[in-house]
Design a protein around this nucleic acid. Sequence first.
DNA 1: CTGAAAGCGCTTACAG
DNA 2: CTGAAAGCGCTTACAG
Lengths: 338, 338
Amino acid sequence: MITIKDIAKAANVSPATVSRVLNNGPKVGANKRAHVQKIIDDLGYRPNLTARALVKQSSGSIGVVIPEIFDPFMAKFAHEIESYATQHDVQTFISSGHNDVEKEAMAINKLLDNNVRSIILHSKVMSDEDIIHFSKIVPNLVLINRNIEVIKEKCFWVDNYAASFAITEHLINAGHTKFVYLNSNYDIEDPKERFEGFKGALKAHNIHLDFNIVEYAEPFHEGGSDAIQRIIKKDLTFTAIVAYNDQMALGAINYLHEIGINTPKAVSVVGFDDVIYASNSIPKLSTMHYPITEMAIAATTTAISEFIDSDIEKADIPHCFTPEIIDRDSVKTLTLAK
Amino acid sequence: MITIKDIAKAANVSPATVSRVLNNGPKVGANKRAHVQKIIDDLGYRPNLTARALVKQSSGSIGVVIPEIFDPFMAKFAHEIESYATQHDVQTFISSGHNDVEKEAMAINKLLDNNVRSIILHSKVMSDEDIIHFSKIVPNLVLINRNIEVIKEKCFWVDNYAASFAITEHLINAGHTKFVYLNSNYDIEDPKERFEGFKGALKAHNIHLDFNIVEYAEPFHEGGSDAIQRIIKKDLTFTAIVAYNDQMALGAINYLHEIGINTPKAVSVVGFDDVIYASNSIPKLSTMHYPITEMAIAATTTAISEFIDSDIEKADIPHCFTPEIIDRDSVKTLTLAK
DNA sequence: CTGAAAGCGCTTACAG
DNA sequence: CTGAAAGCGCTTACAG
């Protein structure tokens, strides 16, 4: 391994000077700087980041803790964060928290042991108190999909209410009044907020809400399938399904297809998230586009802005994001008899 | 930050002794060991991994370089590697190489700068020479989905020929003789090997192969859709489609659906990989199950076996894997008139 | 069984 | 503008 001393020797300067040119430090003569730089290049020297991290008491890396890398929604987040961080020459550690408080805490601690400069956390299971606790320990804790008042400037979240309101209204504008709502059975904020948005839209249009029309299940393909199956058994009349997310929507569509009910001819369906499947399904799903890229950039910028050269004004970074309607093929406009 | 010196002072021993109990080192009296351990626990001391890595000239982390975290197939690989590594208390760095030789090399170098102990690489764009070059620089370079003779013991790959042969034969056994092959247009080994397997199966059953029936496209949903569209224009007769992978298969199924051709009634379709979509589509896709979990475990074991306590015999780790047929709903058995 | 000392490869006051 | 020196938090021969 070639070290800073080797360069110093070869260049006939002190290690301190080499270090200064490496870090674009001040007070190095132009000539000497060029000379040293040439030797660095010639010998292909690469600084040992571990040593640097030790003296600086901090590495040039950030950590990311998400529930599962495997989940396509999360994978996209991780991908966008990593890609943006890499552009700015910062290394990213990605860890899974598996939706378990203990495991998330463990992941954070491991990251801390590795002296990351910042952690971007996506947690739906930690309490506000847990997170506030960690925000005091972690050098720079940034949160995605979470809004905690006291650390608001480190939070990036989506306006679930407005988004759910909008997609429901989209259906109402298409003439639908008989709804089914397929909700997630996870005990977190998002399902509640989205359901509130749904209720809000119905109310705004004077549509009565019968709680019989909502079913809860795991927010995945199977869950959507199960939930709609339970609805069907109730023998209700409906023309539109609002699902908690795309996966549930797609699960419902598939179940309906199996029993001979066509989407969108017989029933319209909308999802939420706009995951990759949404545009590859039959029919292509109308849904709310989750601004993952924008959120990832905002969060990563906040995570790294303190240790990179950046001309981004913090004040310009948005914290609350509103998804947009992507209207594809799963919604039919009703022509009313009345 | 609480350091080893703080513990030493509190326990009235030398830092060396603390270090020894931390590392389960030899030659520490049981009493003293217990005493020191208690102080460590009480104070909640966590060793600084950066410092340790510096003196050991190597961290307890491994690096993973994959084309894209975002790709569900790759995300699964990354997930399985990370999860297995975490079980053994080793931290994982995940980087994207973006299918670009320069970027992959960059990712590897960055990982090296961070003193990872091993790198698991999934590269389809580097030449054998490039990889052999890196295998000399990287402490322990492990390859997935690649088989390079001279570093065979570090390689883990799939028998594409056998797998493709098997799934094609599955179709032949169901009575199909008129095929279409939708291939990837990537200039890498896999498409060639799988196509050879397809040809091999036809030959074994004396079925004539007209090269007119193969079309090339990007190995994604759109590509499958494009490719089958080109086939349709040729006005060929066929009852079965063998696709390079699930995404192309699904793209083809969707396009056929749009023009009113039903799978599997009118045409049977098989994929390859068994990605998550394959079991959530309409119809559920018959495909070859890629043993990602098993391969990830084998690769990770090889990557970390040298620095963890492990009773796994290296000789017991398989290197070549054969996918299995998963028969779902996209293949129809033909009852022949003849 | 235990401790004092050297050293891993850097950075950064400090002094000049 | 430049260098000698100290130190980041550990581990590990070496000596006893």
